[in-house]
Each structure stands twice: as structure tokens, then as C-alpha cells.
Design a protein around this nucleic acid. Structure first.
Length: 363
DNA sequence: GAGGCGTGGTG
DNA sequence: TCACCAAGCCT
């Protein structure tokens, strides 16, 4: 490593952050003391994984009112916790957070970085972020923002994540010199607001010492990662209603939308469309986008006179209970459509095929 | 170590 | 419309 000393190179970050820092509901006023509520830091860090600040703020505020401490969260039911997380995505985080709260409620807070990293859902970044922001431990927290800022500042070629170990060793003295909480947050704040993928170097306190700027290469450092093409699929999304109940999948333990209730879905490739039956209602479909999938969703509503024995994993739910169940955006959309008039579908699967796909095998 | 995991915003 | 991104983690 031929990098200049971190405490010196990063010194302008501290005074810049005092002026430029955003007022966020999980931030402490005093950056030199341990945080008054480590749990608030933990909640915010889990919510902020792969999620923007503006999206997180209202969820964080409601969450802290509903689950004000680890004990309250640990005692809450799974559906209640997922309902509070509904719409935020990556729902596994909610289960990790509840499990971590259970450990903290039972055993107290871990006393070191390794202990934090053993909590579910806390990897190298989040453990260091909680350690530095909540407890003032000199643990370098490297997230996407920090990697981008440091890659440009130090003119690192290739993927800066490959240099994570070197960067942590290099950064640690700067945390000690300028305050772990202050420097950790300042580095990320700079990446989030100034040293963005398309940076505005005019407002950067480190512009005079930035290697990428000097070389006029901020557009190519760090390099963009390739990503896989999403897989395409199409499905019928079906609300089966009978006797004041609707049929839903109970939450799964893993996979897409695990932890949430879901409408039954039929693969449109496997169940070909015929002429729409008079007993069916339909609405215009839409493309549901996930990180690795693109679903063409065709929403349907089928009313029956009587319930039938539901297949394994499916449950009849009183319609009045629907608002309390956690659903993903796709399934919320069909739930909300049920309150608006639909039309007889131009094409749809045979109603008997729908029922057959959702019924228990008859003995 | 590559794939899987949600959703909303932006150019 | 589309590509890319946003305070990652787990398997």
C-alpha cells in the first residue's frame, strides 16, 4: 500500500459533516458519545441495507413507535413484524432483526465486533456500522458508498471490494483520530450525497486530493458490476372467494416473498388460456419486477358458492382479516382490486382447472 | 462465489 | 422502456 495517511487525507470530512449532515431520525446529536439508543441504530442499519434513506424514514419512525425496544420486538408475532415491514422489501431482514432482538433481550448487547457479527443479518458492514455508530468502536464500516469514495480518492483500479482488508487496516487510524461515529457516517454521507455514481465534485471536501478527479476518471472508477438478466414468467394470480373467505398461501420459510401471505398463482405457460368464463372477473394485468425476475401478472377473481378442502399450505381467510396480513406489492395490488369493479375476462384458465390446482387431492 | 432476495427512484 | 442503482447478507 502506498496510500497517504488516512487521518490526514480524510481530515476535511469531519468539519464538512458537521455542516452537511442530514437530520435523520436515528442520528444522535452528540457524535462523540456512545449512542443513547443502540437499538435505534440496529433497526436503521437493517432497514438501510440496499434501501435508500428516503424510503426508510417513515418505516423507521413507525417501527420505533410499535417496537420501541428489543423486548417489544422479540415478543411480537411474525405477522405483526412482517406487517410493519410490508413494502420495504427483503423481508428476511425483518426476521433477522426480530431474532437479533431476542438475543439482545435475553443476553444483553454483545461486547465486541465479533459478537455483533454473530447476530443474524449482520455481516461485516452492518456489524462495523453498529459498532462504530452505536458504541464508538474503531471498526471500519465499508458499504457501497464508502467503497466508491475510497476507490476514487485512492485511485483503486478494479473492484474496490477486493481490497476490503487493506482498506480497513488503512482506515482504522482515521476512525480513532476523528471519532468512529463521525467518520463512519461522514464517509457514507459523502458517498450518498456528493460522491454518487455521477458525482458533483464541486461540493466535495476531498476534491483537491482525489485521485480519480485528478485523472479525470470518476466516470469509470469504480467499475460497474455486471448483473444477470431477470428471468421472465407469466402467471394467473387468483382470488378465490367463497362464504366470506378468500384462499391464501400461508407464509413460506424461504424463497421469494418468504414470510408473507400470497395469493395462489398459476403458471400461465402450464395452464393455457381458454375463453373467459362468465363466473370470472378480471382486471388489466401488469409487469411485476423483482431483482431477478419479471412476472407478467394477470389478476382474476373467482366466486364460488361453497368452500372446498384446500391443498397443503393454503388457508381460507375471512375477508375481514385480509388487511391485517402482510402481503408483497404484487398481492396487495390484487387485494386492492377486489374493491374495484372488474370485467369478464377475454381469456382465462378454465375455472375447474383453477379450483383443481388449489384443492386437496380427494381421498 | 455466484445467485437469490423487493421495491422505488432516476437519467 | 430500460438499465442501473440503494447504508448487504446468506447459502
Amino acid at each position: 500500500m502506498l496510500w497517504p495517511s488516512a487521518p490526514t487525507l480524510l481530515a476535511p470530512l469531519a468539519p464538512w459533516f458537521e455542516v452537511a449532515r442530514r437530520d435523520l431520525p436515528w442520528r444522535a446529536g452528540d457524535l462523540d458519545a456512545p449512542h443513547p439508543d443502540p437499538y435505534a441504530v440496529l433497526v436503521s442499519e437493517l432497514m438501510l441495507q440496499q434501501t435508500q434513506v428516503a424510503t426508510v424514514i417513515p418505516y423507521f419512525t413507525r417501527w420505533m413507535e410499535q417496537f420501541p425496544d428489543p423486548e417489544a420486538l422479540a415478543e411480537a408475532g411474525e405477522d405483526t413484524v412482517h406487517k410493519a415491514w410490508e413494502g420495504l422489501g427483503y423481508y428476511r431482514r425483518a426476521r433477522f432483526l426480530k431474532a437479533a432482538a431476542g438475543t439482545i433481550a435475553a443476553e444483553g448487547w454483545p461486547g465486541d465486533l465479533e459478537g455483533l457479527a454473530r447476530l443474524p443479518g449482520l455481516g461485516p458492514y452492518t456489524a462495523a456500522a453498529v459498532g462504530s455508530i452505536a458504541f464508538q468502536w474503531p471498526a471500519p464500516a465499508l458499504d457501497g458508498n464508502a467503497f466508491r469514495v475510497l476507490a476514487r480518492l485512492l485511485l483503486i483500479e478494479g473492484d474496490p471490494k477486493a481490497r476490503a482488508t487493506d482498506l480497513r487496516v488503512w482506515l482504522a487510524p482515521a476512525l480513532a483520530a476523528h471519532g468512529p461515529s463521525r467518520l463512519t457516517q461522514a464517509l457514507m454521507e459523502l458517498g450518498a450525497t456528493v460522491c454518487t455514481p455521477a458525482p458533483t465534485c464541486g461540493g466535495c471536501p476531498l476534491a483537491d486530493r482525489c485521485g480519480a478527479r485528478r485523472a479525470d476518471r470518476t466516470g469509470e472508477i469504480p467499475p460497474v458490476a455486471k448483473r444477470a438478466k431477470p428471468k421472465a414468467s407469466s402467471l394467473w394470480l387468483v382470488a378465490l372467494e367463497a362464504e366470506g373467505h378468500v384462499l391464501l398461501h400461508a407464509p413460506a420459510a424461504k424463497g421469494l416473498l418468504a414470510g408473507l401471505w400470497r395469493w395462489p398463482a398459476l403458471d400461465a405457460e402450464a395452464v393455457p388460456a381458454g375463453r373467459g368464463a362468465a363466473s370470472l372477473t378480471a382486471w388489466p394485468g401488469w409487469i411485476q419486477v423483482y431483482t431477478h425476475r419479471r412476472e407478467s401478472v394477470s389478476p382474476l377473481h373467482l366466486r364460488l358458492d361453497r368452500r372446498f378442502q384446500a391443498a397443503e399450505g393454503l388457508r381460507w381467510i375471512p375477508i375481514g382479516d385480509l388487511p391485517a396480513l402482510p402481503l408483497g406489492k404484487r398481492d396487495q395490488r390484487l387485494r386492492d382490486l377486489l374493491a374495484t369493479p372488474g370485467q369478464r375476462p377475454l381469456e382465462a384458465p378454465d375455472p375447474f382447472a383453477l379450483i383443481g390446482a388449489c384443492a386437496a387431492p380427494s381421498a
